[in-house]
């Protein structure tokens, strides 16, 4: 079994038990609703409440998304730094999800602040028959505003939606265009910053303002 490899210190194991939903049914439903709205309206920022208090290096939004979407049937990929933290124990206790080191086997992947974004194509991209079998990436940024503006178009956006997340790699629009070209396959993206999040489903196209 993937667990049981490390016995966390007492302090760490105590931290693993803290910070979950106090009222899992209703609080996770509230987060789910916010996520659903964010996916349906790509680029619009949703702010979550503080119902989840995850251990470092996860932000509140990352933690809330994790405990809302993960369960015993999902495999989750974490960065090596997050894998070495108390986060795997915290996720395991509160959601039952197992951590995998295989990006292509992960239904969800989390990249915390300060970590580089792995190539999108290294994750599960789904199949033509089952495009839903792709990875949903959750990526923490310094802020969801203040960066170079990008124009988003696609389902859920009437004309265009401007987003300006800070901290994305300069090559991101190219990576996203490659992902978009795989449609209906491809990954979906949730960008988080603190308690905020916005979604970029694979159906959304992005252009830099100059293009």
């Amino acid at each position: 079994m993937p667990h049981s490899q490390q016995t966390p210190s007492h302090k760490n194991s105590q931290r693993a038990y803290a910070g979950g939903f106090a009222d899992p049914v209703f609080q996770s439903q509230a987060v789910f609703r916010a996520l659903m709205d964010a996916m349906a309206r790509p680029g619009r920022i949703q702010t979550l409440d503080d119902s989840v208090d995850p251990p470092a290096p996860f932000s509140r939004a990352m933690g809330a998304v994790a405990l809302t979407l993960l369960d015993a049937d999902t495999a989750v990929w974490l960065t090596p730094a997050a894998r070495a933290s108390v986060v795997p124990s915290w996720i395991s206790f509160h959601s039952g999800a197992r951590v995998t080191e295989d990006k292509a086997a992960a239904q969800f992947a989390f990249v915390e602040a300060g970590q580089s974004l792995p190539p999108l194509s290294s994750f599960a991209l789904g199949t033509q028959d089952y495009p839903d079998r792709s990875t949903t990436l959750v990526v923490e940024l310094p802020a969801l505003g203040g960066g170079a503006p990008l124009l988003a178009r696609g389902p859920g956006i009437e004309t265009t939606q401007t987003i300006a997340p800070s901290g994305l790699p300069p090559i991101f629009t190219t990576l996203w265009r490659d992902n978009r070209a795989l449609f209906p396959r491809g990954v979906d993206l949730i960008l988080t910053a603190g308690s905020d999040l916005l979604c970029l489903p694979r159906s959304t196209s992005l252009q830099t303002a100059e293009e």
């Binding site: 007492h10 302090k11 105590q14 931290r15 803290a18 910070g19 979950g20 939903f21 106090a22 009222d23 609080q27 503080d50 119902s51 989840v52 208090d53």
Partner: peptide, 17 residues
């Protein structure tokens, strides 16, 4: 609502091994 809070830093006690 706030998350469940409790003393997280309590050290392992003698006898709890």
């Amino acid at each position: 609502m706030t998350p469940k809070e409790y003393a997280m830093d309590r050290p392992a006690q003698a006898g709890s091994v």
